[in-house]
Computed example of a mutant assay.
Amino acid sequence: MELKKSPKADLENKRSYFLEIGIIVALAACIAMFSWSQKERVIEVVEQAPVVVETEMMEVTIQEDKRPPAPMKTQAVAISEILNVVKNDAKIEPTVNILDLDVTQDLAVDVTKFGGTYTGEEEAEDDTPVVVAETMPTFMGGTVDDFAKWCGKHIVYPPAAQDNGSQGRVMVQFVVERDGSISHVTVLRGVDRLLNDEAVRVIKSAPKWTPGSNRGKPVRVYVNVPINFVLSD
């Protein structure tokens, strides 16, 4: 007898149906997984209020040291260490008192012991020239301006300076010695070499001055004189 299968009992007929259901379930599961991972996570930050810690300041008191001071150490000194005790029969030499000296006697002093010898002469006067003296030096009874005018009359204008058109004021300083002569002629501010040399020449050729003095004694005095060189038209 031949066995026959019922078409309803054949499972191959529903194979495609079950395959579609499995694919649908797999897709739904994948979609659910992706959707769950892409959800936004919101983190809520809770701000905490600052914590204030109150500290109480305690007053610190320092107690005064009322202990008595330490006793000072004293050293006993024997009277024998201060006084020179001698026997009764010892001879004591009298101490020389300055009031007992005879001041009428000549006292010889060896000055070589003090590193020098005494010549009996007065100390040498200071030879440094001064700027201002009690009595300033004068020229022929006149002042420095009179001397500048005298120099202007005796100046010989250098021909080369005339050709170059050189002119101006030359400030010259010199020293009036104790005998009235002139020394140490120096140009403080010049124009050019030709005019400077002529100013020095004229001053050196001047006659003697009346010297300056301090307390009635002649002294060396600095004098500044401006000499003008002017070309006439």
Rank of each mutant, 00 (worst) to 15 (best):
V85D: 01
V221R: 01
Q173G: 13
A28S: 12
D89V: 04
V202C: 09
I182T: 13
K113R: 13
G141T: 01
F114E: 05
P158D: 03
G180W: 06
E64D: 15
C151P: 03
V175N: 02
T143K: 01
R220I: 05
A148H: 01
D126F: 02
A124D: 09
I31S: 09
V77R: 09
E81Q: 10
V144I: 12
W209H: 09
V187G: 03
I24Y: 13
A32E: 05
E177P: 00
V230R: 13
N13R: 13
P226F: 00
I24P: 01
V219L: 06
P50V: 04
Y222E: 07
E123C: 01
V60T: 11
L231S: 03
E134W: 06
V77K: 14
V185N: 15
F18C: 04
T210G: 00
A49S: 11
Y222S: 12
P159S: 13
V42P: 09
Q173N: 09
I79W: 11
T135Q: 14
V42K: 15
I23Q: 08
Q105I: 09
K204Q: 12
P137T: 05
E47V: 13
Q162T: 10
D233N: 14
I92F: 06
I24D: 08
V109M: 07
V223E: 08
D102G: 01
V60F: 07
I155K: 02
N224P: 01
S80H: 05
E64K: 12
Y118N: 07
V46W: 08
V221A: 11
A26P: 04
V42S: 14
V53R: 15
T74R: 05
V130K: 12
D233M: 09
E122T: 09
G116E: 14
T55R: 14
A199D: 03
W150V: 06
P211W: 12
T112N: 06
S181Q: 08
M57I: 11
G22S: 06
I62S: 14
H154E: 13
L27K: 06
K87N: 12
L27D: 07
I227M: 15
T104S: 15
D89K: 10
A49K: 11
T119H: 00
Y157T: 03
N224D: 12
T112Y: 02
I23P: 02
G116I: 05
V172C: 06
T143V: 04
K66H: 07
R178E: 13
W36S: 12
P129I: 04
T119Y: 03
K4G: 02
C151A: 15
H154N: 15
P159K: 14
A9R: 14
K208V: 06
F147Q: 07
G152Y: 08
A160C: 06
